[in-house]
Design a protein around this nucleic acid. Structure first.
Lengths: 118, 118
DNA sequence: AGGTTATATAACGCATTAGTTATATATTCT
DNA sequence: AGAATATATAACTAATGCGTTATATAACCT
């Protein structure tokens, strides 16, 4: 069952807050309840619930139901999309630098008959 | 030369806006001036300058000086830190799932003499 | 039924963001 | 010197973000 690729905006927004990244880090150790997650922070329970809503909206966590508890579980999918955007971008940048380096080298060696510029 | 992890905030915040990601994408093709960057957007020049300030603050771009122009150039460094945070996190998550799967398997097979639990 | 626990929602304050227009500051061109 | 160009800054507005406290909802326990 695939979720719709929650967009990059939502993913990066969710990751941009240190509290939310800490929540995710905690979830890497396994499911947790809202109370579990709130405990380490000097912050009210409603504040944590809001952070969870942001994470959920980004698809970074899902919630289930266990009696009165709503266990939170981390999901990797949106992170893979975000990672892949960043990797593609870095690759494009580095390729661009390489082209520039090549061009500079050619200029420094002086124009040749195969030089496409001039 | 390591930067403190507080920079992850700045990086993800910078990446969380689609205009800023589009600016970066444009910069993958090479240096550009503020005017170049503003052209494709239905947005004023000061708005773009502000976005550039956010990107610069995150270290995602640097500026130089060429007469009255201030060419903008993309930098990969902060992206590598961000990518690496995300990859570490996904790895931890997947390891956690694997441990859980292993545990469930054991429980299903019934406890054995080597079972560390019980 | 009544009390406790887990979580969500409402209403609010304050700081920040993303845009605007108008203006200032450099730099270049004639 | 004066006009034009490239960019930055200021002042403002509207929307959003992150926290709070108080309260509602739902499930659990006697």
């Amino acid at each position: 069952m695939q979720m719709p690729p929650a967009d990059l905006d939502a993913t990066f927004i969710a990751l941009a807050d240190p509290t939310r990244r800490a929540i995710l880090a905690r979830l890497a150790a396994g499911e947790a309840t809202v109370m579990d997650l709130a405990a380490p922070f000097a912050m009210s329970q409603p504040a944590i619930s809001k952070h969870l809503k942001v994470l959920e909206h980004a698809g970074l966590v899902t919630r289930s139901r266990d009696g009165q508890k709503r266990p939170v579980r981390a999901q990797t999918e949106p992170l893979k999309a975000a990672t892949s955007w960043m990797e593609d971008y870095v690759r494009a940048l580095e390729a661009s630098y390489q082209r520039l380096d090549g061009l500079l080298e050619e200029l420094q060696a002086g124009p040749t008959s195969t030089d496409p510029v001039n």
